[in-house]
Nucleic acid binder design. Structure first.
Lengths: 347, 347
DNA sequence: CTGAAAGCGCTTACAG
DNA sequence: CTGAAAGCGCTTACAG
């Protein structure tokens, strides 16, 4: 069924059918009714391809995410997802303009945002790394009537269309549960985190709180220590050695980030296979550690999908409106020796 | 950049540019080179929408999967995925014709297949429930030069484009690992399976083998019994009661299917909260059992995605050829109390 | 309030 | 070997 055929059946021109389909008005009640009936009767669905082609409407989606320094960077995969999503929608008239900022330099974030305002996009995907400034930006976008969604990091109480990313506290809780299973009767745990100059967003903290929360909620008598390391150079790792020598009963280590790989290397080299290890995110070298069970579990957040879905969701929104907006997306994926080979099927 | 613009730059007609882009031949070496250069230079990518619209090529994809009796049926979700995928690609000229068969009636499978042959489709998605007959069908399709892929169940040694479904043995192994973590020092396990009139495909067996395999590979001294129940009526469950009364040291039960819900109900009613429980697939009532930790872990295989990806993959293949064929897709997803609320984001 | 015409970017006969 | 024309299904001014 095409518009032309409908028009013929209704004894009107295609233009009139088009007017009815899109409620553009300027059609007499009588013809409108007649056309509507025929439309219903034939279950008409317009050809989206032809429609987009004819409309020549262009949409610009701005993306504001951290820059990635090579494959090792967390943001590498979301960016790939964003790029792939763009390729899929570009023929529908979408432009995706990415603006990258340095997640350790507040002012690069501000600069990028200014550029986006200059661009006057139809919608924005934001990774609100800097919370306060992000809030300010969002209010500006609200004023400009530009819709936006958050990727990877959430801020409560904003007008964002949706949030696409993980619930960090829940993910931490899950890590707690898995750790609990792993350690059996052991009662001493250690959390190792990497020291950061800035604590911009709170997902690391949330993961740690979730982790601790698991044990307190369950009323489990477990001692959880915390160690902050500057980086993974030898001298820094010595702090860890010292700590473990002083606390030989540590049964498991939780690392709320991909820093887990450095800890895995450490455990492997010092033959500390008895210490259970749970971390976040997966990289090439993590796979080996999983297979040799130096790392017991990794929790990942599907970074590629976050990028891909952000752009696709917002495109759907622009094309079809609010109804088509995907639900909140919050993957918590567990990876371990037995499923590591199958963990990625879309990359 | 459009073909028209390229044509102008090359001083030829759009038709000639089109010939070069698609290697249709009948273009002098000189003009071809000139056009190729300009194409490269401007990084031309043709508009897929316009292309599809103009080509008016129609593709027919036949789908051969089991019928689903309501939402409770495993095949309900793959079918939904198939339907959603079709909606996304229909404007590209794809028709998706689904043929359903009764997975307990071999001849319904044969009938459906005959209909598909009559349809002469461009490609087929098959759930090869009946192994031998499926092989026969695949050979026929090979003769007819009709490509096909397998969904949910795999058969080795066929010419299928790809397999979209889980590796059952690996999934069983993972269940073994999780069970091992759960039971600590307990040494007695039970596998409960539902008796089936037909054992058509082997995924249940594979899961069980994988599960046992985990313990034998690790040389763990664990006794694993097996119980087959006809269904979940009271009289049948009494077998289980009897077994557990005789074997009070059972620490965990593994159910390699969604029959786990019946077992969960049983454990809950008899207040057997000490017995750990791992099963497969997730349904509405499983969520409650997960939250109350009657079920400790469920392993799922993303049924919706299997359907969706099957159709999308084969459409990609028809549109773009072998290069665009998605990799083997084999999700093994672990669901437990802490992530049950986030397990589905695309349904 | 309605229709005829032109056009979106690409493809397909047809003519030469 | 190449171009002009018509068309895919829908939309958009424009004219009346």
């Amino acid at each position: 069924m095409t518009i032309k055929e409908i028009a013929k059946l209704a004894n009107v021109s295609p233009g009139t059918v088009d007017r009815v389909i899109h409620n553009r008005g300027g059609v007499s009640k009588a013809t409108e009714d007649k056309i509507q009936t025929i439309l219903k009767e034939h279950n008409f669905e317009k050809n989206l391809l032809a429609s987009t082609l004819a409309m020549k409407k262009k949409f610009v989606i701005a993306v504001l995410v951290p820059s990635a320094n090579g494959e090792r960077d967390f943001w590498f995969k979301p960016q790939k997802g964003i790029h792939d999503a763009w390729k899929e929608i570009k023929d529908y008239g979408f432009k995706v303009e990415s603006y990258y900022f340095d997640q350790f330099e507040l002012k690069t974030f501000a600069t990028a945002f200014d550029q986006i305002k200059g661009l006057n996009p139809d919608a924005v995907v934001i990774a609100p790394v800097f919370q306060e400034m992000s809030k300010k930006f969002c209010l500006e976008l609200d004023d400009l009537n530009i819709p936006y969604l958050f990727i990877n990091i959430d801020i409560e109480g904003m007008q964002n269309l949706t949030y696409i990313g993980q619930d960090s506290a829940k993910a931490g809780e899950l890590a707690g549960k898995l750790m609990h299973l792993l350690i059996h009767e052991q009662k001493e745990l250690l959390i190792v985190r990497k020291k950061r100059k800035f604590s911009m967003h709170h997902s690391i903290d949330d993961r740690i709180n979730g982790f601790r929360n698991y044990f307190t909620t369950k009323n489990l008598k477990v001692t959880i220590s915390e160690l902050e390391l500057e980086n993974n150079r030898k001298e820094e790792m010595d702090h860890l050695t010292r700590f473990l020598l002083k606390n030989p009963d540590i049964g498991g280590i939780f690392v709320p980030s991909s820093f887990v790989n450095a800890i895995a290397k450490f455990l492997f080299e010092f033959e500390l296979s008895k210490i259970k290890l749970i971390g976040f995110d997966i990289y090439k070298e993590s796979e080996e550690y999983l297979k040799t069970e130096v790392i017991d579990f990794l929790i990942t957040q599907k970074p590629y999908d976050q990028g891909y879905l952000s752009v696709k969701s917002i495109a759907d929104y622009l094309l079809f409106g609010k109804d088509h907006l995907k639900k909140r997306f919050a993957p918590i994926k567990i990876i371990t020796k037995e499923n590591v080979d199958f963990h990625q099927w879309v990359e």
